[in-house]
Amino acid sequence: MALKNALIALMAPLPSYFFYTSFLNHYQNDQHLLSPLWNWCYRHPLILANILFFLNIDVGFWLISLLQSSNWMIDLYWTVIPVLLTHYFASYPDGQYNMWRSSAVVVLTWVWAIRLTHNYFRREKWQWGAREDWRFTDMAQQHGQNWWWVSFFGVYLIQQVFLFGVCVPLYIVHSVNKSINIWDVIALIICVCGIVYAYIADTELYTFVTKNEELKEEGKAMVPNLDKGLWYYSRHPNYFGEQLWWWGLAIFGWNLGGTWVFIGALINTLCLAYVTTLVEKRMLKQEYRAESYKMYQKTTSIWVPWFKSPQKEVLKEKDI
């Protein structure tokens, strides 16, 4: 099954790849049978990217999910699609951009994607498609027999809105040729901090979960709550790191005149805020950790880290 899922995941984006390659090879040939199509594609890079996403991801991945009764692949491709979009915009024939800024964004996007993909496989014990996101499983139970069509909108089409919203800066970076300035440096620093911060937080979480699994197998009491390292300063430092990355990327686009690019990062933040509430409700349903997590909620920031001195903790415990 793992090999089968790996082959499916590797072959899934090929239709878009072959179409785009054909476009690059023939868009200058006015005698080609499909020259009207290639000319249209040349004039509408964003629309073309959205059409390819809709047909290949929304429809294609959805059909695969119906055959497999699992929506596991969209989780993996959340880390891959930004890389594909980066190279799509960078290689577009009509692209205009500063080579240094483009190179920085391409490298940053690859580093971000490698980190997130590594975390995905580490979390899934290095298996392809072993399970789908628990949120999709819960939604499937809620919608019952209607899930087969609801999933198209609730899992795939909505991902297109979110992903293109946060990835618009990648398009702007490769459509405006402007000299490097201080805002590029600031954006780069924020993106790097976000990647590093999220990596440390996810590694601490992975270590915690692995240790608890070992304790459970040994029949010992599990540790109810992770409140060490970055998790000492906020309840979801991994989410905070991800937000730093997307807002840093948005600054790249804003610096080039895309004053509205923050909308994508804002929508993503609001969505993640909703996901955070679901995660915390799920934590509180686990009896062995409910009371400990309630205390954790009262003494620790939800996202943004802030210092907690021992004196403050003592005072808060007295108040509780």
Results as ranks from 00 to 15, higher is better:
A12T: 09
W149K: 07
P36S: 11
M139E: 14
A201W: 03
Q96K: 01
T137P: 00
N50L: 01
I81K: 00
N238W: 06
S292Y: 05
Y120H: 07
R123F: 10
V106C: 07
F164Y: 11
K298G: 14
L24C: 06
S35P: 02
Y206A: 14
F121A: 12
N238Q: 13
G257A: 06
E317W: 01
I320Y: 04
N212F: 03
F136Q: 10
Q145H: 14
I114M: 04
L55S: 14
R122H: 14
E291P: 00
T207Q: 10
F208C: 11
Q31A: 14
V168W: 04
V161M: 09
Y20E: 02
V59L: 11
I64H: 12
E313K: 02
V196Q: 04
L48Y: 02
L37P: 01
Y288E: 12
Y293V: 07
Y171E: 04
T203A: 01
V166P: 00
V166W: 02
L230D: 04
A250Q: 05
V223P: 00
M11T: 14
Y239D: 15
Q297C: 12
K312D: 15
L55D: 13
A12H: 03
Y120M: 06
W183A: 09
P15A: 10
T117M: 08
E242W: 05
Y206E: 14
K125R: 11
K285L: 06
V161L: 13
L67T: 13
R122G: 15
L230K: 02
V107L: 14
D58C: 09
L284C: 05
R43S: 13
F307L: 12
W260M: 03
I47A: 11
C191G: 02
H32S: 04
V173P: 00
W247A: 11
Y206T: 15
F153G: 14
G95P: 00
I195Q: 02
W134A: 15
F164S: 05
L7H: 09
S16G: 12
Q243M: 10
M11V: 13
A9H: 04
W40V: 11
I200N: 01
T299G: 05
Y17A: 10
E280Q: 06
L67A: 15
I57Q: 00
I57R: 00
T269N: 07
D319T: 03
E214S: 04
V314E: 12
W148N: 15
S179D: 14
M295D: 14
L256I: 09
T21H: 05
V80Y: 02
W306S: 11
W112P: 05
N268P: 00
Y232H: 13
I8Q: 10
L205G: 11
I180H: 03
M1A: 15
A49S: 12
Q142F: 11
L244Y: 12
E214N: 03
W303P: 03
S35L: 04
S103V: 08
H174Q: 11
S69T: 09
N39D: 12
K4M: 10
W149L: 10
K298C: 08
M222G: 01
W147D: 14
I190V: 15
M283V: 12
S309L: 04
T269M: 05
S16L: 01
W231F: 13
Y120A: 05
C193H: 07
Y232W: 06
T269R: 02
L116I: 09
V161Y: 11
T79P: 00
N56W: 01
D30S: 08
L37R: 04
N71Y: 01
Q243C: 04
N177A: 08
M295Q: 10
P13E: 07
